[in-house]
Design a protein around this nucleic acid. Structure first.
Length: 229
DNA sequence: ACATTAAATTCGA
DNA sequence: TCGAATTTAATGT
């Protein structure tokens, strides 16, 4: 049986797809499945076994944790076009963080066994996974640097620029449907300071703020701003 | 924290 | 099904 529709479309647009053999394509098409979530819904609970590797076909997810006082901090935003959760699946551990839909989303699930089989069978695929893990490591190191050394506007600029990381989020379009509150959680700042930072970036013509939407005008300038505020 | 504004939803014809 | 009224969400200070 052949897979069709949005699942197949998404798989075919994924950067690692073209490196697979016909047999590998067939197995992934057989094993992968797609689920839809409403905004606010939990995709993976914290503490649940990591038995799938995940791709975002549509929408926007976040990886976050809730402190005992109820406040939430976001470790990662995962826009459509991104694959994530390699680390948790490889280790076979319980998910250390929750995955939540920020807005209506559809998510592709690849079973753990299929993912590990691809790593064993496909050199291009395992190479791509190495690049993926390496890009994520680079991202977190850069984020620590940004947060320790730079002011709020530069931090927000960095977080926004990472929505366009070519390895981790290759298909992000310039209109980001994310609230300032969510962006604040991602940037480790209050909503108020996030608001100020956004207007500073708007003054610099790097982006435009709209209701519930941030329109990025120039990703390259955003990256530069993140490093020399 | 509070006031304002945009968007989403409900309701009545 | 249209649009006014109400509620909810997001923003600005």
């Amino acid at each position: 049986m052949t897979v069709s529709g949005p699942l197949k479309t998404f798989l075919e647009s994924s950067p690692w797809w073209s490196g697979l053999t016909v047999a590998q394509v067939e197995r992934v098409e057989r094993d992968a499945f797609l689920r839809s979530y409403q905004a606010g819904a939990t995709v993976c609970q914290r503490g649940s076994p990591a038995v799938h590797w995940l791709g975002v076909a549509e929408g926007l997810l976040k990886v976050d944790t809730v402190a005992s006082d109820g406040s939430a901090t976001t470790f990662a935003a995962v826009p459509s076009g991104s694959w994530f959760g390699e680390g948790a699946v490889l280790k076979g551990e319980l998910r250390p963080y929750a995955v939540v839909a920020i807005r209506d989303s559809s998510v592709v699930f690849v079973p753990r066994a299929t993912f590990q089989w691809l790593i064993d069978e496909s050199r291009p695929f395992s190479r791509w996974v190495i690049d993926q893990l390496n890009a994520r490591l680079g991202h977190y190191v850069a984020m620590i640097e940004s947060f320790r050394l730079h002011d709020p506007a530069a931090r927000v600029a960095y977080c926004l620029s990472e929505f366009f990381n070519p390895q981790l989020s290759p298909r992000t379009k310039s209109q980001l449907a994310i609230s300032q509150e969510e962006l604040g959680r991602l940037s480790g700042m209050s909503r108020q300071n996030t608001n100020r930072a956004l207007h500073e970036l708007e003054q610099a013509e790097l982006l435009r703020v709209r209701y519930g939407v941030i329109e990025v005008l120039d990703v390259e300038k955003l990256r530069q701003f993140a490093w020399k505020p």
